[in-house]
């Protein structure tokens, strides 16, 4: 059998076309089947998890750290004595450090010094995700910025990129610094970065985040920001809310009612 150059070109063109069509058909079929396969998820309704922090309610008891304690024990967050090695998922900072633009000479009295709970902002356009060289951190379809501790190489580029200081690195083995290990959630190992995961493991079971459940004042309101009728959206319609450094264009999913 002799194939001329013309035949060869024709054949290879046809086979490319065939392969392309097959791929396209598979893609179309794939998107169809995935839509059918998940009846539990309302595919028409987009999800973007978010949280509203009611600072007025939160400040009622400034010694309260129920949310922090609940998060730390749910996620095996270590308590390291050296502040340089601290690991923090949810923590508090004084108002003026969190919202420096709100701190002007004469407006500082009301909120100065009150502790503001902070966590990962689960940005719409997360700088940490943009810089991660291994996709160990990425944004899920529901807006949660996830971490894959199996893949993280510990380069800490995400920590340099995060404008909110929300990320912690395991400078040392965290296990000895965990009082009671919750066996249902992995600890981390030295050399990986971690942060708040919006309790995605609880959301998967239909539960709300641990910090939200733990708050005695119900100051943390969690819900779907994409749903106009959700609890956070109703609050945001009624009250004046701010995000942290919205001018950076990161689109934080955490709103503060001030």
């Amino acid at each position: 059998m002799k194939i001329t150059r013309k035949d060869f070109l024709r054949l290879s063109g046809l086979s490319f076309l065939a392969a392309g069509t097959l791929e396209a058909a598979r893609a179309v079929a794939g998107s169809d089947s995935s839509a059918q396969n998940s009846p539990g998820k309302p595919s028409a309704q987009p999800v973007r998890w978010g949280m509203v922090v009611d600072v007025q309610k939160c400040r009622k008891d400034q010694g309260c750290d129920a949310c922090i304690g609940a998060c730390n024990s749910a996620h095996n967050v270590p308590h390291l004595a050296d502040p340089k090695h601290e690991v923090k998922w949810i923590w508090t900072e004084p108002f003026e450090n969190v919202f420096p633009f709100e701190q002007s000479e004469y407006a500082q009295q009301t909120d100065a010094g009150i502790p503001i709970p902070l966590m990962c902002n689960h940005c719409a356009s997360p700088p940490c995700v943009h810089v991660c060289p291994t996709q160990a951190t990425w944004k899920r379809d529901d807006g949660i910025v996830m971490m894959d501790w199996h893949r993280c190489i510990g380069c800490r580029y995400c920590m340099a990129a995060c404008p909110y200081g929300s990320r912690s690195f395991n400078w040392v083995d965290p296990r000895p610094a965990i009082a009671h290990i919750n066996p249902d959630f992995p600890t981390r190992t030295k050399g990986v970065v971690e942060k708040c995961n919006f309790c995605e493991e609880r959301l998967a079971q239909g539960l709300r985040p641990a910090c939200v459940e733990a708050c005695p004042e119900k100051a943390l309101v969690f819900g779907n920001l994409a749903d106009p009728n959700s609890e956070p959206r109703q609050l945001l319609r009624k009250r004046f809310a701010v995000q942290r450094e919205p001018e950076l264009g990161t689109g934080p999913s955490i709103y503060y009612l001030v």
Binding site: D82, P83, K84, H85, E86, V87, K88, G154, R156, M159, A160, G165, S168, F169, N170, W171, V172, D173, K190, G191
Partner: peptide, 13 residues
Amino acid sequence: VGLGVTGMSRDVS
């Protein structure tokens, strides 16, 4: 031991 043996920290990472 981990990178904790260096002078780096959560803030100066």
